[in-house]
Each structure stands twice: as structure tokens, then as C-alpha cells.
Nucleic acid binder design. Structure first.
Lengths: 208, 208
DNA sequence: TAATTAATCACCCTATTGGGGTGATTTTTT
DNA sequence: AAAAAATCACCCCAATAGGGTGATTAATTA
């Protein structure tokens, strides 16, 4: 039989904090071992708490949640961090995930779902609110109406990998001049005149 | 009151196909308007079916599921495509999402969850199996133990954007020679000697 | 079938870049 | 006090990037 999941909560709103603590603590298989209202407060003791999962708010006084993630990860390398926030801005989400968060829930998530997510994250899952998942999925989706031809797209991808004309020519078994010609056409179509601008525009519009 | 959700299924396994069709069709609010065993078969009629959501298998005879996605999107631009597959390979997932799939479920997903996901996807959600979500989230996570300093990481990111030394120098308000010096150190630490190799290694190891 | 687009290659030009050496100074962090 | 990070300087030179202009041969689409 597996032991209880040890949960710590870092949330500045007292009502929410106590609410979560009560709900999770009352659930079989879960122990809320500590609650904090800021990272600064948590940093002093959380290493000895050794939680399995941390519920972390983004909007915190002092060190904000995103910046807290790498610090918490350093204190507790094997701990999973689950973001619990009202924010749904794309940058916020991707920054949190890049920093090491293992899941992202919005605060309208029903408590049963939160409790389920805590278990999921410990079992290697990646819990997300459905609207968060939408943003994440959309971030992968490429533009289907690219002005670029297949070959041009392919070459622009290689440019995005930092490859020179010569490297591209070798990789595609075509002449250096052909690569040049394609790049010129790419620039024409995208109305840019440098690699950096082409890459930027292409990534913004998800052409590559 | 909203009308029923019209669902089409493309799945080559007859048992599974009929099973899904029966389960979904029996659920209130859902109509299974057509089922197909391949893309080639579906392509002839699906445009007139006008489904809201297509359940799509990856392993199909003839045109595989991934290649079918853009074709289906072209026939039905406003239709959501939900992948239903046993495959969990990272490339497969990202290719499917890049091609325009709006969700990704594995076949061990309970039927209630599948039915729920169909509704979610139509409401702008992005349903994913939990293990798929894990892979997707992990794809965002950066390596916390980078050998590179902050400045070096920052410069490598700009190199990844296709920027030249001069552009980087301007952007960071430092001398061109300083940029060079940083790049040299990056190359030393990563043991490479070109932009392309540095970017490749950095992306593989999620340093940027 | 005609017209367009895609893909291929060629040769003109020149400022800039990229990569390799070697070394030094000043902060910042440990 | 020692180490690491960040800054700048000057040597070299082959290769690159970006701009012109133009042409040939598939494919695709009208």
C-alpha cells in the first residue's frame, strides 16, 4: 500500500489556503503537511517538510510564483509543482512550465479535480485545465495557409536551426545557388531582408 | 438548447469503430453521423456529412492519420479533429498537433472520458490523456542545470533567433567583441564550433 | 492547352560575418 | 581569497549574407 501524498500549499489568500488545506487534508491518501503565504516564508522550512507535491499560486507577495519555481526545484529536486492560479496569459503559462512546473490549473477548477490532479502529477501525468490545454495545443499548431512552398518552408526551418547556405545545400543535395535563390524568394514573400527577421516572422505566424 | 454534436469516426478496426459509434451515438447530445475505415473512403463523403468533431485513428490503411489531418482540415475548416490512438511517441504527438489536431487521446481512455472530450474540444478545450499531457508539458521544460551562464544563455537564445553578432551587440548594449567572447565561451562549454551545432545541442538539452 | 508557380542553377558585386588565437580588466559570486 | 562571469581589444582570413539579373525545367493549376 502506498503512503499518503504529502502536500504543501503556497498561497497568499488565507481563505483559499485554508480551504484547499482542509479539503485536501480531509481526503484519504493525502496529507497537507504545511501551508505558506509566500515563497520567502516557505523557503525557510519547506526543505525539511519534504512534500511530494507543492500547490503554488502565481500571484504572491515578494518573490512571484514563476520565479519561485526554480528556487523550489533547487530545494526539492524530486518535488512536483502544480500551479494554481487565476492567470491564463500565454506567457505566464509557458514561463511556468519552462521553469519546471508539472501542471497548470486555474482556480475555477473544482476541488475534486484538484485533488485528482495532485495524484496524477505524482504518477507522471501532466494535469492541465482544459482551457490551458487548448493554449498549449494551439502553440504547437502550424499555419496551414503559408505563403511559402514546401521547399521554402523546409529551407526556412534549416535557417531556423542556424544553418548556413552551404550546410543547407549539402543537406538537401542541391546547389548553393539554389539555396540562395530559395532564400531570396522567402525574403520576397515574407517582405524581410535578413535571417533574423524571416525567422521571427515565420515563428510568429507559425510557418515553421 | 444547443443542437446535438455531430461526430464522424475514422478507424480501421471494425470492432472499435462500431463500439465507439454505439457508445457515442447512445449518449444524449451526440449523433454519430458517419463512420469510415480509411481516409480514402472518408474523403469522398465527409465534406457533405459536415461533422463537428472527427475521431481519427493514426494507424490507418492508405493515407495515415497524420497526413489525413491537413486534408480533412481543408475539406472541413471548422471541424475539430480528435486523435484516438495507441501510439504515444513524442514525434507522433507533436506532428499530429502541428498538423491541426485539437486533442490527443490514447485508446485506453475510458469511453466516458472520450465522450466528455468530444464536448470539451467543441467548447474550445484541448483534451489530452494524462500521459500525453506529461510529454507535452515536458517539452516546454528547460534544463535547470545548464553549464551556461545567464548571459551566455541569453546570447544563445538570440543566436537561435538567427541574429548576427552585430544585432546581438546592439540589442544587449554591449560591444561586438564582448558578444564574440561570449560565443567563444559557449562553444567551449558545449564543445561545438558552429552556430548550427550550438543551437542543435542547446535545443536537444533544452538549454534554450 | 496555356499560364503560373515551384525548383533548379549561374555569375555579377562587396561589406559583414563567423570562427580561431591570445590576452586583459572589472564585477559578481562563492 | 579564489573562482566565475561579464566586459573589451586586436590579430587573421575564408566564408557568408544579402542584393542584382536572368534562365531552364518540371509541376500544378486555371
Amino acid at each position: 500500500m502506498a503512503r499518503n501524498i504529502k502536500v504543501s500549499i503556497i498561497e497568499d489568500d488565507e481563505t483559499l489556503r485554508d480551504g484547499y488545506a482542509f479539503l485536501i487534508g480531509a481526503t484519504e491518501g493525502y496529507d497537507v503537511i504545511s501551508t505558506y503565504c509566500s515563497y520567502d516564508e516557505a523557503s525557510k522550512k519547506i526543505a525539511t517538510d519534504k512534500p511530494d507535491v507543492i500547490l503554488l499560486d502565481i500571484e504572491l507577495p515578494g518573490v512571484n510564483g514563476i520565479d519561485a519555481i526554480p528556487k523550489l526545484k533547487k530545494l526539492l529536486p524530486n518535488c512536483y509543482i502544480l500551479i494554481l492560479t487565476v492567470y491564463e496569459s500565454e506567457k505566464q503559462i509557458f514561463n511556468a512550465l519552462a521553469a519546471g512546473a508539472s501542471g497548470y490549473l486555474t482556480k475555477n477548477t473544482p476541488s475534486t479535480k484538484i485533488i485528482e490532479s495532485i495524484k496524477e502529477v505524482r504518477e507522471g501525468g501532466g494535469p492541465m485545465s482544459i482551457n490551458i490545454a487548448r493554449l498549449v495545443i494551439r502553440s504547437f499548431q502550424k499555419n496551414q495557409e503559408s505563403p511559402l512552398s514546401k521547399r521554402e518552408t523546409q529551407i526556412l526551418e534549416l535557417i531556423g536551426e542556424g544553418k548556413s547556405r552551404g550546410q543547407i545545400a549539402n543537406e538537401l543535395f542541391i546547389d548553393l545557388e539554389t539555396v540562395r535563390s530559395h532564400i531570396k524568394n522567402i525574403y520576397l514573400k515574407l517582405d524581410v531582408n535578413s535571417r533574423a527577421d524571416a525567422i521571427k516572422l515565420a515563428r510568429q505566424n507559425k510557418l515553421i
